[in-house]
Design a protein around this nucleic acid. Structure first.
Lengths: 210, 210
DNA sequence: TAATTTATGTCACAGCATGACAGATGACAA
DNA sequence: TTGTCATCTGTCATGCTGTGACATAAATTA
C-alpha cells in the first residue's frame, strides 16, 4: 500500500476519532464540522471528501459492523435454516468485532453510546438497517427457495430486525453485555416461535389449505 | 373555535398540502422551504413556526396516524392479550383513517407514497415509531403485569414493530390494500408464533426451569 | 374604542453541503 | 534525478436549513 493510501486511511480514522470525541463531550448538534476539521488539521472542505455528511462520520462504525454481519450471514452453511443462519451470523459478528483491532472496537463502542443518546442518529442507524434489508431478504429468499417479492422472506427478515432492536440496551456497553443480551433475546425467540416458522414448507401445511 | 384558531388550522393544512404536492412532483430534496411558503403565500419564517423542519411537514400525516394507533391501543379491552390488542388496534387504525375527512385521508396516502420513495423520510418514520415505542412498551408491560424494563414487553413490541414494517408494500396504495396486507401478515404471524408467547406466564413454564 | 395577546414579516446569522478552480503532493516512467 | 501525470487538498463562492430578535399587523377581550 502506497504512502498516499496510508495517509488517506490515517486521515479518515483521525476524522472519525475526533468527531466521536467531540460528539460525546459536547453533544452531536453542538459540534460543528469546522471543529472536527480543525482538530485533525484539515480544511472543512476535506471533511466532506471523506464523509458525505456529519451523520455519516458518526455512523461509520455501525455501518462497518453491518457489512461484517452481511458477510458472516452469506458465509453460513446452506444446511442452516434462514433464521438460524441469521442468529448465528449475529453471534459471529459480535465475536469478529471484539477480536478486531482494538482501535476499531473502541470506535464501535463510542459510536454505539453516541447513537443511543442522539435520536437523530438512531434514525440514521435504522436507515442503514433498511438499506441492507433488501440484500438480506434476497439471501433469505434464496435459502427458502422463494421469491424476494414474497411475503415470507420479508416476514422473516422483519422479525429478525425486530429482535435486533431489542438488543439495544441502555446503560454501560460492552461486547460481553451485547452477547449476553443477544443470548437472552434469542432464547425468548426460541420459546415464542414455532419450529420451522421460517421455512417455506410451513406456508403450505396441507394441499387442501390456502 | 375563534377565527384565529381556524386560520391556524387552515394555514397548517395548506402548508402540508403544498409541501406534499411539491415533494411528489419535484422530489423531496429538490423542493425548498421558500417554494412551499411562496405557494401558501406566507413567509419562510412562518413555515418554521408550524413545523420545526422540512421532515416534520412531510411526516405529519404518519405522525397523526400513530397517535390514532396509540389511542386505539389504549382503548382495547383488558381481556385481550398484548399482541391481540396490538393487532386489533392496527386494524382499527386503518378503519379510522379511511372513515376520516377525505382531505386527511388523501394527505395520508400522499405522504405514504412520498415516504416510500424517499429513504431519508423512511428513516424519519422509523424514528417516529421508536419514539412511540416507549409508550407502547409501558402499556404492554402494564397488561402483562411485568416491568417496562423487563425483556418480555420490549420483545413483544419489537416483534410487532417488525410486523408493521412488512406492511409497507411498494406500488399503488390504498386503504383496502393496506388492510389486505395487514391481514396476510397477521395470518403469517399466527402461524409462526406459539399461543401465549406474549404472556408473562410463558416465561416461567415450570418452577424447576430457569 | 382601547388595551392586550398572539401571529406574522423582516432582518441577521450560524451551520451544512456542494461546485469550481488553483496549488501542493505523491506516483511513476525515463 | 527529473519531468509528467494523477490525485488530494485548500480557498472561494453559493444555496438551503434552521433560529433569534424585533417590529408590525391582526384578533381577542374589556
Amino acid at each position: 500500500m502506497g504512502l498516499r493510501e496510508r495517509k488517506k486511511v490515517q486521515t479518515r480514522n483521525a476524522l472519525i476519532d475526533a468527531a466521536l470525541e467531540l460528539f460525546l463531550t459536547q453533544g452531536y448538534d453542538a459540534t460543528t464540522i469546522d471543529q472536527i476539521a480543525a482538530r485533525v488539521d484539515v480544511s472543512p472542505r476535506t471533511f466532506f471528501r471523506y464523509f458525505s455528511s456529519k451523520e455519516e462520520v458518526a455512523l461509520s462504525p455501525p455501518a462497518d459492523s453491518q457489512e461484517i454481519f452481511l458477510a458472516e450471514f452469506a458465509g453460513r452453511p446452506e444446511s442452516e435454516s434462514p433464521y438460524t443462519a441469521l442468529s448465528q451470523a449475529m453471534r459471529a459478528m459480535i465475536g469478529t468485532l471484539r477480536d478486531r483491532d482494538p482501535a476499531e472496537a473502541e470506535r464501535f463502542m463510542k459510536s454505539r453510546q453516541l447513537v443511543e443518546e442522539t435520536p437523530h442518529l438512531l434514525a440514521g442507524q435504522m436507515r442503514l438497517l433498511m438499506d441492507n434489508q433488501k440484500r438480506l431478504v434476497a439471501e433469505v429468499a434464496r435459502r427458502q427457495g422463494t421469491d424476494a417479492g414474497d411475503l415470507l422472506p420479508q416476514f422473516v427478515v422483519s422479525i429478525f430486525t425486530g429482535l435486533g432492536m431489542v438488543c439495544h440496551t441502555s446503560g454501560p456497553q460492552g461486547f460481553d453485555i451485547m452477547a449476553k443480551r443477544l443470548d437472552d433475546v434469542l432464547k425468548l425467540a426460541d420459546r415464542s416461535l414455532r419450529p420451522g416458522w421460517d421455512l417455506a414448507t410451513m406456508t403450505v401445511p396441507s394441499p387442501a389449505a390456502g
